Computed example of a mutant assay.
Amino acid sequence: MHQRFIAPGAYVQGAGVLESAGEEFATLDADRAYVLGGETALSTVEDEVVTGLDAAETEVGAITSEVGMCTHAVIDEQTERVRKTDADLVVGVGGGVAMDVATAVAHRTDTLLAVVPTIASTDAPTSTVAVVYDEAGNFQEVLHRDRNPELVLVDTAVVADAPARFLAHGMGDAMATHFEAQAVAASGGKTDAGGRSAFAAVDIAERAYRRVEDHGPDALAAVERNAVTPAVERIVEANTLLSGLGFESAGTAGAHAVQTGLTNVGVREPHGLLVAFGTIVELLVQDRDPEVLEAALEVVFDVGLDVTLDEIGVTDDDLARVGELACEHGMGQEPVDPSPERVADAVRTADELVCRRRDRPRRND
């Protein structure tokens, strides 16, 4: 198995970038666009997206704000609408759900794909990946488009206007990318890009984590006041581009496996929050050095991602099933061979560490 590194055609980020969206859309040379997203996201940037498409002389065939989940039924419905519209470009606007649906639909219809994230809560925008859930919110499968988005447009002024918790959730995804990349590289596992971990991707994944460690709290302080600072730009890039390139071409493992386990026992908390908790579990499963574990816990607390099992509604009786599900959905990418029991014990221990850490002073206290 060879290394494989994949990436979007273009990634454009900055405050006010949607004001020049026409120049970016024009590079795609599309005739007709189908725009999809959530109601909140489209209410925020629909005018700028439509203006940009008009400037690029790309007709807007249809706009839908009815995308609230990424299920097979939603993908089927949106695929049919794109075909009826005869669009050759799908534009996904919003958060992770909109990105996933747009990616799956663009693959089904063999159209171009542009994504316009309005929050930086996941690393989905740059990838080929669409995560599909059932109507109850349980994980079902991961679908892959045959190529990355042709264009990713991230207006950091829009991101900074969103609630700060979304940026924090993206940091949970970004920190997990580093430790999962290390795990997959050590185990020789296969990545979402379809090959062995690329050295560059592993390095990029580490940079994503270091950005969160160094700039996360400052970025959160800025977006609490709807401000765009260099720290915000660095964290948005870490959450979206660095983490996206890192997870796809370096691999996912234990942190996301735990998130899947928690989701499929009924937890409906944000992805990044669960992945951050899953990162602590992953480090315990690996029996990493105490200083590595402590540093990761410090980051989790610094950006407000600390959570306990009680707070997310998980009982001790659920943990055996969480361990089983995690081992079915990614723990095999770890450089150790954990049993469901070992994973369940690591979940218990992570919960205890969070509880104990709350009783200690924070770094800046």
Results as ranks from 00 to 15, higher is better:
Met1Asn: 07
Arg4His: 09
Ala7Gly: 07
Pro8His: 02
Gly9Pro: 13
Gly9Ile: 07
Leu18Pro: 03
Ser20Met: 08
Gly22Asn: 09
Glu23Phe: 11
Val35Asp: 01
Gly37Met: 04
Ser43Asp: 11
Val45Thr: 03
Asp47Met: 06
Glu48Pro: 04
Glu57Phe: 01
Glu66Met: 01
Thr71Cys: 06
Ala73Phe: 06
Ala73Thr: 14
Ala73Leu: 10
Val74Gln: 07
Lys84His: 15
Asp86Thr: 01
Asp88Thr: 01
Leu89Asn: 07
Val93Ser: 03
Val97Glu: 06
Ala98Gly: 12
Asp100Trp: 00
Ala106Gly: 04
Ala114Phe: 09
Thr122Cys: 11
Thr128Asp: 05
Val131Asp: 06
Gln140His: 10
Glu141Asn: 04
Val142Pro: 00
Leu143Ser: 00
Leu143Thr: 04
Arg147Cys: 05
Pro149Arg: 00
Leu151Ala: 11
Val152Phe: 08
Ala162Leu: 03
Ala164Gly: 07
Phe166Leu: 08
Ala174Thr: 12
Ala176Lys: 01
Glu180Ala: 02
Val184Lys: 00
Val184Ile: 05
Ser187Gly: 04
Gly189Arg: 00
Thr191Asn: 01
Thr191Met: 05
Asp192Phe: 11
Ser197Asn: 03
Asp203Ile: 06
Glu206Gln: 14
Arg207Gln: 13
Glu213Thr: 02
Gly216Ile: 15
Arg225Glu: 15
Thr229Gln: 08
Thr229Asn: 10
Pro230His: 11
Ile235Tyr: 03
Glu237Pro: 01
Gly244Leu: 10
Gly244Phe: 03
Phe247Ile: 15
Ser249Ala: 06
Ser249Asp: 11
Ala250Asn: 12
His256Asn: 10
Thr260Ser: 08
Gly261Cys: 02
Val265Arg: 02
Val265Tyr: 05
Val267Arg: 03
Val267Gly: 07
Glu269Gly: 04
His271Lys: 11
Val275Phe: 08
Val281Arg: 02
Leu284Ala: 03
Asp289Ser: 13
Pro290Arg: 09
Glu291Asn: 09
Glu291Leu: 08
Val292Tyr: 02
Glu298Asn: 12
Thr308Asn: 12
Asp310Glu: 15
Thr315Leu: 05
Gly330Ala: 13
Glu334Ala: 15
Pro335Glu: 14
Glu341Phe: 03
Arg342His: 11
Arg348Asp: 09
Asp351Asn: 15
Val354Arg: 09
Arg356Cys: 08
Arg356Gly: 13
Arg358Trp: 14
Pro361Val: 15
Arg363Cys: 12
Asn364Leu: 14
Asn364His: 13
Asn364Thr: 15
